[in-house]
Computed example of a mutant assay.
Amino acid sequence: MKTSGNTILVTGGGTGIGRALAQAWHAAGNVVIVTGRTRENLEETVAGREGLHAMPLDVTDPAAIATFAKDVIARFPALNVLVNNAGIMRYETLGAGRDLGDAEATIVTNLLGPIRMTDALVDHLAAQADAAIINVTSGLAFVPLVATPTYNATKAAMHSYTQSLRAQLAGRVEVIELAPPAVQTDLTPGQSTREGYLPLATYTAQVMALFGQVPTPAEVCVPNTLFLRNAEREGRYDDVFAMINQH
């Protein structure tokens, strides 16, 4: 993926990693569009930054995605990069019957959302030069946090889906997986100040350095992610599983 001169669409760009990367890509010389459900958050992301644009979207709504795809292509015909970043993370207890609303919302947002966004834009992207799709997964795709079972499962599914997508789009669209570790954001309550989590600014700088490599890695994993990504391969899985789930 080239580092500048792109037109990049970032879902979930109103907060957290999405906001930080959107602003970093914009600063690197790209036109960036951010989406999200909360207009106020989007406006905070783009404030004072010419060439960084806000377009509200709820990725859980398939009809809204279809309409949005037409609108964004009309407004930004040079769009060549899709970043599927929007996601939610919910704590769940599985030991008894329960309301499955959190599990279902997580699947719709984290798995069906990226699949639908990709489907809505893939024909356009495949016709562009230097096209790329970036799917944001998680280190928890490789070693799960037992308190967030459906979140882990959706990220593991997106890891697998991304591999198939990469093979099918080879030679037409570059497909990259971005797998964050535990980062200080507002993804879950208290996470933005949680000790031991990677500061957001540090993570963003590490990611931008990896995207600056030629060629861009197929999996963009910072060192804290590699601790999880390579745990099974390196014979550390049981120890890492126990460590991240000790509380």
Rank of each mutant, 00 (worst) to 15 (best):
I17H: 04
N110K: 06
G18D: 02
A147M: 09
N245C: 11
G5R: 04
A179N: 02
A105K: 08
N245T: 10
A167V: 07
A218C: 04
G51L: 07
A105Q: 14
A63E: 13
Q168T: 08
A120Y: 02
G113N: 02
L228G: 01
A47I: 07
A20M: 06
A78M: 10
T60F: 05
G235L: 07
R233P: 05
N224F: 15
A167K: 12
Y91P: 07
T148Q: 12
D58T: 06
D239N: 13
V220E: 00
I17K: 03
L169Y: 09
A69R: 00
S160T: 09
R49D: 05
T15N: 14
P215K: 02
A209I: 08
A69V: 04
T11C: 15
T67P: 03
N85R: 13
L178T: 01
V122F: 10
P217T: 03
A54T: 02
T137R: 02
G29A: 04
R37S: 04
G12V: 03
Q213F: 07
Q184D: 10
I134A: 00
M117W: 02
M55S: 08
M1S: 15
Y91K: 15
T11K: 07
L210P: 02
K2H: 14
D186A: 15
L125H: 00
A131K: 00
A24P: 01
G95M: 13
G97E: 11
D238Q: 07
P56C: 12
I73C: 11
L198C: 08
Y91L: 15
A132R: 01
I107S: 05
L52G: 01
A153N: 06
L94S: 14
R90S: 11
A78D: 15
